[in-house]
Nucleic acid binder design. Structure first.
Length: 409
DNA sequence: TCTGGGGTCCTTTTCCTT
DNA sequence: TCTGAAGGAAAAGGACCC
């Protein structure tokens, strides 16, 4: 039986969920962004007493009225026509479409819908791989009807079931593997189905830009273009050794296979997290000396949130790291392994503090983050006889950014 | 004029041990 | 006792994705 893998992508997921809540905004340019201040305005408890659908369109905040840091998380299709899309700065977006309605992101609500649509899929086709809040891979191979019309019949059933239950639309690509299914799901958006077979490679995949391959980002694409490679077909013309010489063993070999539409990764139904982190960008840049108290409070809060996340998810971490972004956007990270796994806020705070002592804090900061890696379930944690890690944790190189009492903030 | 937050994976560098 | 090579683990950084 030929392998059939589907990639399902919800259409403008966050924006669509918001439109279910605010149907009066249908047909309007709506963007969702990191608008902390606006969260209070729109979700004002007094306002929530009435029906959300009765709030007049004129009452919603506009992009042009927003001042502050942040980027667009996502945009409705109407807003996308103005050139607005994910990761665009809010200030720039405001110039492109000042009248666009700006809503704060409500992740709790999106997660609710995410669970709902994934449960619907799992009832129809049990082998489902989670790829974030609005995407999944589905193995159609053994599912009854999964082979009919190359998978179109089953894809149609899933689309309809999701729409009937949630009012949301999605786009589905079905192909011999995940790599091609992912590309196929982009072909017809929104609410489309695309079927790809191995025979479609040259006609439908090779003319596409290399950037369409999931895994080729802006940097790799720029390098490929510099080498005269524009399309996936161009990439397929290069031999294996040439690609390895230019992009390294792993990436080169992967590109070689990808250009030929080959990908044998399975659809993985249960995956364990590798790390958990919390980070925050400050409303204004902060300075280690001038804003010591504020930074210290933020740092402690991040550690507490991280500990709480670990406990909620049922993990303990052994590697604690921090991330710092300076005003010039340069990023540094430091991490260190503990003698034993932990989900304790004070242990995390202490280890993260030691990491921080190894970084120069002369420049103003715009972001601070804390991370826990090498995760295990608490029961799996065993005491380790090796004391070297514990010893290492106390012998941290000092920098001149450390104050006399050993505390930074 | 800007550029979020939460992840994964890979490569390179550094450090430690033998 | 010192030095250097080799290998592995940990750390750092970067690319990429949603």
């Amino acid at each position: 039986m030929p392998r059939r893998v589907a990639h399902l992508d919800m259409d403008a997921f966050y924006a669509s969920v918001e439109l279910l809540r605010y149907p009066q905004l249908r047909g309007r340019a709506v963007v969702i962004g990191g608008a902390r201040r606006l969260a209070d305005e729109v979700t004002d408890p007094a306002r929530l007493e009435g029906s959300l659908s009765r709030i007049a369109v004129s009452e919603f905040p506009r992009l042009k009225d927003y001042t502050g840091r942040g980027v667009i998380t996502t945009a409705s299709y109407e807003a996308r026509r103005f050139g607005i899309g994910s990761a665009l700065g809010l200030m720039k977006a405001a110039r492109l479409c000042p009248q666009a309605i700006l809503l704060p992101a409500d992740f709790a609500e999106y997660r609710k819908y995410s669970h709902a649509f994934k449960n619907i899929i799992a009832e129809i086709a049990p082998i489902v791989e989670d790829r974030g809040i609005d995407e999944v891979y589905i193995d159609f191979t053994e599912v009854p009807g999964g082979q009919r019309e190359g998978g179109r019949v089953l894809a149609r059933l899933i689309q309809k079931s999701i729409f009937d239950a949630t009012g949301l639309t999605c786009s589905i690509g079905v192909a011999p593997n995940k790599l091609l299914a992912k590309m196929a799901s982009e072909f017809r958006k929104p609410n489309g189905i695309s079927i790809l077979t191995e025979g479609d490679l040259q006609a439908k995949i090779w003319p596409l830009a290399c950037r369409k391959v999931n895994g080729i980002g802006p940097k790799t694409d720029a390098e490929l273009q510099r080498l005269g490679i524009q399309t996936i077909g161009d990439l397929a013309q290069r031999d294996l050794q040439w690609l390895i010489d230019h992009f390294g063993q792993k990436t080169g070999a992967w590109m070689y296979e990808a250009a030929r539409g080959r990908d044998d990764r399975p659809v993985v139904t249960n995956s364990q997290p590798v790390s958990v982190s919390r980070e925050t960008t400050f409303a204004q840049n902060l300075h280690a000396q001038r804003n010591k108290a504020e930074l210290g409070a933020i740092f402690t809060r991040l550690c507490q949130q991280l500990a709480s996340d670990l406990q909620t998810k049922g993990y303990v971490g052994k590697t604690i790291g921090i991330k710092l972004r300076y005003a010039d956007f340069k990023c540094v990270t430091r991490e260190q392994s503990l003698a034993c796994h932990t989900a304790d806020a004070s242990v995390i705070r202490h280890a993260a503090g030691l990491c921080l002592k190894r970084i120069s804090l002369a420049q103003p900061l715009r972001l601070l983050g804390v991370r826990a890696g090498a995760l295990r379930r608490p029961g799996e944690c065993v005491a380790e006889p090796d004391a070297s890690a514990a010893a290492k944790a106390t012998s941290v190189p000092m920098t001149d950014s450390m104050s006399a009492d050993g505390q930074l903030f």
